[in-house]
C-alpha cells in the first residue's frame, strides 16, 4: 500500500447537496408557512376588502378618506409623528454621544434607563402621564412652585400632553440605533480632521454627521413609523379631540362596523409607514455608497 492509496478522510458533515437543500427548505418551511398564511394572505384580503363594493371594484371608501374631515385626521397622524420624531431627535442625537462616552457604572445606569422604559408596558407609561399631567398633578405643582405659572394649566387632553407622552414612549427607539453607530465611531477620524485644520464645527458637520447618518436614518424611520400608528398614546392622552388614523381604524371596526372604510384607512396607514421605511432604506443605501 502506498501513501497515495490512503482512504480519503471520511467527510465530516457533507451530505449530498441535494439533501442539504431539502433539509434547508424543511427548516425554513414552518416559518414560511406562518408568514404566508397569517401575514401575506390577511394583508391581501385587507387590500381586497378596501376596494370591494356591492357591485365589483370601487374606490368609494378611499373617496370618503379624501374628504376634508378625514384629510384632517390623516394630517393629525402625520403631525403627531413629525413632532414626536423631531423632538426625539433633538434630545436623542446629543444624548447618544454622551451615552457612547459613558463607561462603567454610569453606562450601566444610562442603558438601564433606556431599556427599562422600553420593556415597560406602553399602557403603564401612558397611564403615568395621565397622573402627572392632571391639573392637580405633579407637573402643575412643580410649575406653580417654580413660579412659572400662577394657576394650574390644563395639560391632559391637549396636544402638549400627547406630544410629551409620545416623545417619552418612543425616545429609546431614537437613541438606541444612533448609539449603536456612535459607539463604533472611530474618534481618530475626528482628530485627523482637526489635525488637517478643520474647526470642531466643520469636523462635526463633515465627518461625524455623515458617519452617524445610518443611525440617524434608522432612528428617525423607526420613531416616525411607530408614532404615526400609535394608538394607546392618543387614546389615553388626548382622546376624541384629536382623531388619528389609528383611532379612526379602531372605531370603524369596534364601534361603527364599517370594515370597508376601516380597511381603506388601514391601507393608507400602511402606505405611510412603508413609504417611511422605503425612503429610509434608500437614503441609507445612498449614504453608504458615498
Amino acid at each position: 500500500m502506498t501513501a497515495t492509496e490512503l482512504p480519503a478522510p471520511s467527510p465530516v458533515v457533507s451530505p449530498a447537496p441535494d439533501r442539504e437543500r431539502w433539509l434547508a427548505i424543511g427548516f425554513a418551511g414552518p416559518a414560511t408557512l406562518v408568514l404566508v398564511v397569517l401575514f401575506a394572505l390577511p394583508l391581501a384580503l385587507l387590500f381586497t376588502a378596501s376596494v370591494a363594493g356591492p357591485a365589483g371594484l370601487t374606490l368609494s371608501e378611499y373617496e370618503k378618506l379624501a374628504t376634508p374631515h378625514y384629510l384632517g385626521v390623516i394630517w393629525n397622524s402625520l403631525r403627531l409623528a413629525l413632532l414626536t420624531t423631531g423632538i426625539a431627535f433633538l434630545i436623542g442625537y446629543p444624548a447618544s454621544f454622551a451615552l457612547a462616552r459613558a463607561r462603567g457604572v454610569l453606562r450601566s445606569v444610562m442603558l438601564a434607563a433606556l431599556f427599562l422604559p422600553l420593556a415597560a408596558s406602553v399602557i403603564v407609561k401612558a397611564f403615568a402621564w395621565t397622573i402627572l399631567l392632571r391639573s392637580d398633578g405633579l407637573v402643575n405643582t412643580v410649575l406653580i412652585a417654580l413660579g412659572i405659572v400662577d394657576e394650574p394649566i390644563r395639560m391632559i387632553f391637549t396636544e402638549t400632553a400627547l406630544i410629551v407622552g409620545a416623545v417619552n414612549i418612543f425616545l429609546p427607539f431614537m437613541i438606541l440605533p444612533i448609539y449603536a453607530v456612535v459607539a463604533q465611531l472611530d474618534h481618530r477620524l475626528v482628530e485627523a480632521a482637526a489635525t488637517l485644520g478643520a474647526s470642531p464645527v466643520v469636523a462635526f458637520v463633515r465627518v461625524v454627521m455623515p458617519l452617524t447618518l445610518p443611525g440617524i436614518i434608522a432612528g428617525v424611520a423607526l420613531v416616525f413609523s411607530l408614532s404615526v400608528s400609535a394608538y394607546v398614546v392618543p387614546t389615553l392622552l388626548i382622546g376624541e379631540r384629536y382623531p388619528t388614523l389609528s383611532t379612526t381604524i379602531a372605531k370603524a371596526f369596534l364601534l361603527a362596523r364599517q370594515p370597508g372604510f376601516g380597511a381603506a384607512a388601514g391601507v393608507v396607514l400602511l402606505a405611510i409607514t412603508l413609504t417611511a421605511v422605503a425612503l429610509s432604506a434608500r437614503l441609507g443605501r445612498s449614504g453608504g455608497s458615498r
Binding site: 384580503l45 385587507l46 404615526v228 394608538y231 381604524i249 388601514g266 400602511l270 409607514t273 412603508l274 421605511v277
Partner: peptide, 10 residues
C-alpha cells in the same frame, strides 16, 4: 415595520 393595528384588522 407593520403598524400593529393594521395586522390586527387584517
Amino acid at each position: 415595520m407593520m403598524p400593529g393595528l393594521v395586522l390586527g384588522i387584517a
